[in-house]
Simulated assay, not measured.
Amino acid sequence: MNTTFLTRRAFSSVLSIFILLSISFILFRLLPGDPISLMFRDPRLTQDQLAYLREKFGLDKPLWEQYFIYL
C-alpha cells in the first residue's frame, strides 16, 4: 500500500473527528438555558448547591477551557 495514501487518509479522519466534535460542542453551547438547571429541576436545591454542581461539572470555567476539556 502507498504510505502517502494512508497518511492522507489518517489525517483526513482525524480532521473529520475534530470538526464533528467542534460542531457538537458549539451546538450544545447554543442551546437555551443552563444545563445544570435543566438537569436538576428539584426546587429544593439552593443556589449554593447549583453553584457547586456547575463547578463540579466545569461549567464555571471559561468557554475555551471547557472546549479543551471536551476534546
Rank of each mutant, 00 (worst) to 15 (best):
R54T: 13
F5M: 02
F28M: 11
F68T: 09
L21T: 09
I69M: 08
T7L: 13
F68A: 05
M39Y: 10
I19P: 09
G33W: 03
A10R: 03
T3I: 06
Y52C: 12
S24R: 03
G33T: 12
L50S: 04
E55L: 15
F28G: 07
L59H: 05
F57K: 01
L38G: 03
K61V: 04
D60V: 14
I23Y: 09
L45F: 14
F5P: 01
F18R: 01
R8Q: 08
F11L: 05
L53F: 04
L30E: 01
E55A: 15
T7N: 08
P62Q: 08
T46A: 04
L71I: 13
S22A: 06
L6Y: 01
R8C: 08
E65C: 11
N2S: 11
F40Q: 12
W64P: 02
R44M: 13
D34W: 10
R44N: 13
M1A: 10
S24V: 02
S22V: 02
F40N: 13
R54V: 06
V14N: 00
T3M: 06
F40M: 15
R29A: 12
E65G: 06
L27F: 10
R44S: 14
I69P: 08
R8P: 06
T7I: 10
R29Y: 10
R44C: 07
D48T: 15
L21P: 03
W64N: 05
F5C: 02
F28S: 09
R29E: 09
D60N: 15
A51Y: 08
Q47W: 15
S13P: 00
L20Q: 05
L15E: 01
T7E: 03
R54W: 08
Q47K: 15
L50A: 05
F11N: 00
R54A: 04
F57S: 03
F11D: 00
R41F: 01
L71H: 15
F25G: 03
S16D: 04
I26Y: 06
S12N: 01
R9E: 00
P32R: 10
T4G: 15
S22I: 02
P43H: 14
Q47D: 15
A51P: 09
S22G: 04
S37N: 13
W64R: 12
Q49I: 08
F5W: 04
A10W: 02
F25N: 01
M1G: 12
L50E: 02
T4M: 15
S16V: 04
V14E: 00
I36T: 11
I17M: 06
L27A: 14
L21D: 07
S16Q: 04
L21V: 06
Y67H: 05
P62L: 07
I26L: 09
P43V: 14
F57I: 05
D60F: 12
R29H: 13
L15Y: 01
F18L: 12
N2V: 02
L31T: 13
I23Q: 10
T3A: 09
S12M: 03
F11R: 00
R8D: 08
K61Q: 07
A51R: 07
A10K: 03
L38I: 09
S37Q: 13
D60A: 14
Y52L: 14
I17C: 07
T7K: 10
P35C: 06
L63M: 13
S24T: 03
I23R: 07
A10L: 04
I26R: 05
Y70K: 04
M39Q: 10
W64T: 01
T4V: 12
I17W: 03
L38M: 14
T7P: 01
I17F: 05
F68Q: 11
T4A: 15
R54Q: 09
T7Y: 05
P43E: 15
